[in-house]
Design a protein around this nucleic acid. Structure first.
Lengths: 254, 254
DNA sequence: ACAATAGTGTCTTTTAGACAGTATTTG
DNA sequence: CAAATACTGTCTAAAAGACACTATTGT
């Protein structure tokens, strides 16, 4: 029985008891959109285990940092880009015994939306030989024919959870603009929703909903460039609202 | 450089390298409703640190179990009730250095909704001297006057996150019925929403929305008992739908 | 001119919110 | 009886979905 008078006295004498010891890592799901397709940053593994498979970027959490800080640090190391905290969202923690065949590893996954142009050539880390964005539809398990890029560890599960979370966040948070650069057109914004949700939207109804959702976007008063044929669209920038009301609901396939 | 031909060969020779070692625990937020008030199960701490404060139930995750399994096991030990997995939801993982003054502890929190009648007298565990349900409004930091029950570690933060998640889940998942016993009345269901959301609802509009949300509740064809004056309400049971459509939105105070 | 895409307007249906009024119970 | 609570019905406004139509660009 402890008989200390104050917490300071107790802690001064405290010796850690036996407890299970675990490695703790942070994994990051960085999504972006390229050519209208939803993509995720993956690093190719150069060594065992899962040699030649692809993995989410990530690494050990140091003793003096939170998993958020570790995720932000790894992100900087992998992409040379610093992300704001509000775009770095904790997704879920994975603790299944054996998820890493080498040892017990607990991993907290984070979710980040990256604008198409911001990230240059991702930099490969220690264990990796190359890092690239891959279209989700080219990853095994995320397309109809069951081939393509193979993911290491339980990263298929993590990615699936991330995609559902991303689709859900687009509904009531103004995060779709994080995929775009400073100014964008409504059709570009619509293509973000279509890429993440995986089905086409009615262009005119989408436009009305976005403009009726107060604070979602603000007109800039210019027109964008044309990368195909057709009318040139007007430019907007992200508004300052933090919650979309009314929400942009997907109503299909839930 | 590793030159193994197969993953089996590699793992046979593998020796863990140095990595930061962490304690890993699961904490559980068990919510229930008593006398129309939202309550949480807390255990009183008998020893340092945070002696005489109250804490969420929880404990170490064993090497051969997931944090989900640990949460379910702790829950059984604390309450003598087994919960189904779909009522046991991972909330968030907390990793701030120093959150436990004794050592580095990573903790994953879980959220559970308990029916009022199901849990008898909660059983105190090893480090605890008593375990009870406390009204949220009696906990320091969750009421207007800033006194009341004091929580240990970062459990105020965890509880705040849990309450927001609970309020959000009521909107589009049929989880409010998990607070009630097998059969219930619409007014009883409404009082669950009012307790979790913290503001009163229009009784007639609430009834219409619940009945228009297909599969949320099914009539039983009897009437309940009266614990006050007024007309006796009809009984319903939980339906089989997994997502509420249309959702029961709170539209206020978000 | 024609194809393609952006944007406007309109009609219908669904849902939310407010609230008046009726029904059933207790004291 | 009055008070309290459950339930029904109705009106209005917000919002979604479908879709016809106009506007502006590239080829």
């Amino acid at each position: 029985m402890s008989n200390y008078e104050t917490e300071e006295d107790f802690l001064k004498d405290y010796k850690p008891k036996e407890y299970p010891s675990n490695a703790y890592t942070a994994d990051i799901v960085i999504l972006t959109i390229k050519d209208g397709k939803l993509c995720v940053l993956l690093v190719k593994r150069g060594g065992w285990p899962y040699k030649d498979c692809y993995a989410l970027p990530g690494g050990f959490v140091d003793q003096d940092e939170t998993s958020e800080m570790a995720a932000a640090r790894e992100l900087k190391e992998e992409t040379n880009v610093e992300f704001e905290a509000h775009n770095l969202e904790q997704l879920k923690t994975y603790s299944t015994p054996g998820r890493d065949p080498r040892m017990r590893v607990i991993s907290t996954a984070y979710l980040v939306f990256a604008p198409t142009g911001l990230i240059g050539t991702p930099v490969a880390g220690d264990d990796a030989v190359e890092a690239h964005f891959f279209a989700i539809e080219d990853i095994a398990g995320f397309n109809s024919n069951n081939d393509g890029i193979r993911l290491a560890f339980d990263h298929s599960t993590i990615l699936a959870d991330a995609l559902e979370r991303a689709a859900s966040k687009l509904e009531d948070l103004p995060v779709a603009t994080a995929f775009l650069d400073g100014t964008f057109t409504i059709p570009e914004l619509r293509r973000v929703y279509e890429a993440v949700w995986g089905f086409p939207l009615h262009a005119s109804n989408f436009r009305r909903k976005v403009l009726n959702t107060e604070g979602f976007v603000e007109p800039v008063g210019e027109v964008g460039k044309n990368d195909a044929s057709g009318r040139v669209a007007e430019l907007y920038k992200a508004g300052d609202v933090r919650i979309l009301h009314p929400a942009i609901l997907r109503s299909k396939s839930r």
